[in-house]
Design a protein around this nucleic acid. Structure first.
Lengths: 188, 188, 188, 188
DNA sequence: GATGAATGAGGTTTCATTCAT
DNA sequence: TATGAATGAAACCTCATTCAT
C-alpha cells in the first residue's frame, strides 16, 4: 500500500508482467510475475495494491509508452498528411519493436479489468497528437461520421497492418507505407 | 436405449457461456456456466471434454454464426461494391444484434486458448464470401499489399465502426453506410 | 440389484476389473471397467450393487481360483512333503500364469475394502488342502508357534519367491524347487 | 526474512498421513490429512508438490525409520546368527510399536504410486545391515537362489509373524523368538 | 521495506451411482 | 434388462493476498 521505495523494482514488475501475460494471458499469476521480476511474492503488493491495480497501471504505462513514441520528433508544422504519416509510422515502429507489449496492451484493452477511469487517463496522454487528430476528425465529421471515428479507424487499420508485418518482417518498410496509403485514401 | 445427448442442452451451455464470459471474461467459471444453462456442473463435461474445448467450440460456433449471417441472401452476381456492401452490412447487423456474442468472439480471438486448428476450421466456414474477398484481395495485391490484407482491413474497420454504433444506436443505419464509404474508398 | 441374467457378462466385468485394477490400482473406475467388459456403465450395477461389492466378489473369485488350482490333482495319500510340494508348486504355477490376478489379489488383501466376512468366505474355499495344512500346523504348534503360522509362512515365502521368478522367468522351475527346499527346511 | 519452512510442520503432515491412510487407504484425502496435521489445506502443498509426492516421501520416511531402528546398537562383530537375530527382533519391535506405520508402509509398497526411484532411495538407507544381509545372501546363492532372496524371505516371514503377534500380544516375546528359529533354520 | 510461508476460498474435473428411455 | 446421460459431492490443486519474521 505504500509507494515507490524503488522505481526500478516497480519497473521490473511491470516488465515481468508483460512477459508473463504475453505467455499466459490475464490469468498470469502474481507469483510468477514477482519471481520473474526478481522480487518476493509479497513485495509485489507493496508496489501494487492488487492484481487488478497492477493490470490497470500496466495498461496505462503501455499506452503512455506508445504515445511517447509518437510524440518524439512530432512535426507540428507540416502538412496534415505528413503529420498523419508520422503518427502512423512511429506507432507501428513501436508495435513492431515490442510485439509483446502490444499484444498485452490489446488483451488488456479488450478485458473488463481495465476501468473506464484508466482508459480515460491513458487516452489523455496523447495530447501532442491532438491537433492532428482533430483535423482528421473534422474531415470525418464533415462526412457525417462521429467524433473519434478517424482515430479509431486508424488504430483498427494499424492492427491489421501489424498482422502482416509480423508475418513478413522483411517487407516491413514497404508494408508500413502501403498500408498508410490505404488509410489515407480512406480518410483524406 | 438411454437418454440421448440433446443438442438443446449443448446449445444452452454455449449460450450460457456467452453470457458469463461477457460478464466475467474468460475466467468465467464452468460451474456458473452450467448453472445458467440449467444443467449440473458435471453435465457440462459430457458435452465438452474441458473448459478449453468448450471455449474453442464456442469460438467456432460464433464465427460460424456470423459467417452464416453474411451468407444469407448473398448477391453473387452484382457489382463488387454491392457484394462488399452486403458483407459489410450483414456482419454489422449481426454484431449489433448480438453485442455479447461479438464481445466474446473478440475476447476469444485475442486469447491463446483458441488453437490455430480452431481458427482455421472457423475461417474455412466463410466459403460463400471467398469470391468477393478474393476480388478485393486482387486489388490490394495490385497495390503491393499482401494477400489477406483487404479482409483484415475490413474486419478491423468494422470493429471501429461498432464502437460508435453502440454509442449512438439511433444513427445506426447512417453510421453503417458512412463507414462503408470510408473503407470502400480505401480499398477500391 | 438383481442377479446374473448373464453369467458371461458377470465374468467379463470381473476380468475387466483385474486388468484395470492392475493398471490403476483400486482407484480404477467403474466406467473403465464396464467399458473394457463391453457393457454400459449402468449395467455393471445390475451385477454388483456397488463398487465395494464388486471388489469383494473379485477377491473371493481370485482366491477361489487359486484354491481350485491347488486342489486339482491333489495327492491325498502321499507323504506330507509331497503334498506340501503340490500346494507350493501349483499355487506358484497359478500366480506365474496370471500375474495380474495375483497382483490384484494382493492389493485387495492389503486394503480395508475387503470385509472380514469376505476374507472368511474366501479362506473357507481351501477345504481340500486342510488336512495337509493341519499336519503342518501340528508341527508348528509342537514348536510353540500358533495355529495358522505354517500356512501364513508358506504364503509369505511364496510372495517372496514370485518376485524373483518374475525377474528371471527362465529359471522358473529351478527357483520354484529351491525355494520350496528353503521353506520345507524351515517347517519340517 | 520471512517465516521459514518448519520441519515440525512437515513431520506433522507425514504423521497425519499415516493415520488417515491407515483408516481410509491410499484414497485418504489431502484435505483430511492437512486438517489432522493442523495446517490449512493449501499448506500441505508447500511441503509436498502433490499428493503423489507426499506418498513417495512418506514411503521413504517409513523405510528410513525402520532401517534406523535396525541400525541402532547393531552388533557388528558377533556371529551371523546373532546379527540376523538383531535385525529380526529390532524390525519386529518397530513394527509392533507402530502398527499403523507398518500397515501404511505395506500399502504403499504394493501400490504403483511409489516410483522405482523412491524404492531404490529407500533401500539404499539400509547400509548398516548390508554386510549381514550379504553373508546371508552368499549362503542362499550357494544353494542356487538368486541374490536378494534371503532378505526377501526374511521380510516375508516377518509379515507373517506380525499377523500373529498382533493377535496375541501377550506372547510377543516368545513368538518373535520362535519365528526367528523358523527362518534361521530355513536360511542357515 | 522485504520476504516467502501460510491461508482457504474457489476452480476444474472425476466418478460412483441413478434413472429416463 | 440394458443403456449412457445426468447428477453433484468431493477430490486435488492454485493463487491472490496476508502477516510473522
Amino acid at each position: 500500500m505504500a509507494r515507490l521505495r524503488s522505481p526500478e523494482k516497480r519497473s521490473a514488475i511491470l516488465d515481468a508482467a508483460v512477459l508473463e501475460i504475453a505467455r499466459d494471458g490475464l490469468g498470469a499469476t502474481t507469483a510468477r510475475i514477482a519471481e520473474r521480476a526478481g522480487v518476493a511474492a509479497g513485495t509485489l503488493f507493496t508496489y501494487f495494491a492488487s492484481k487488478e491495480q497492477l493490470l490497470n497501471e500496466l495498461y496505462f504505462e503501455l499506452k503512455s509508452e506508445s504515445y511517447a513514441r509518437m510524440s518524439v520528433g512530432f512535426p507540428h508544422k507540416v502538412s496534415l498528411e505528413r503529420r498523419a504519416w508520422h503518427i502512423w509510422s512511429s506507432y507501428l515502429d513501436w508495435a513492431i519493436e515490442f510485439p509483446l507489449k502490444r499484444k498485452v496492451s490489446v488483451q488488456l484493452k479488450v478485458s473488463d479489468l481495465v476501468t473506464p477511469e484508466t482508459r480515460e487517463r491513458a487516452n489523455a496522454q496523447g495530447s501532442a497528437l491532438k491537433v492532428t487528430i482533430a483535423e482528421l476528425e473534422e474531415r470525418s465529421i464533415g462526412r457525417g461520421l462521429p467524433a473519434g471515428f478517424a482515430g479509431a479507424a486508424m488504430s483498427a487499420m494499424q492492427d491489421a497492418a501489424l498482422e502482416f508485418v509480423s508475418r513478413q518482417p522483411k517487407r516491413r518498410a514497404e508494408l508500413v507505407e502501403r498500408s498508410f496509403q490505404v488509410i489515407w485514401r480512406a480518410l483524406k
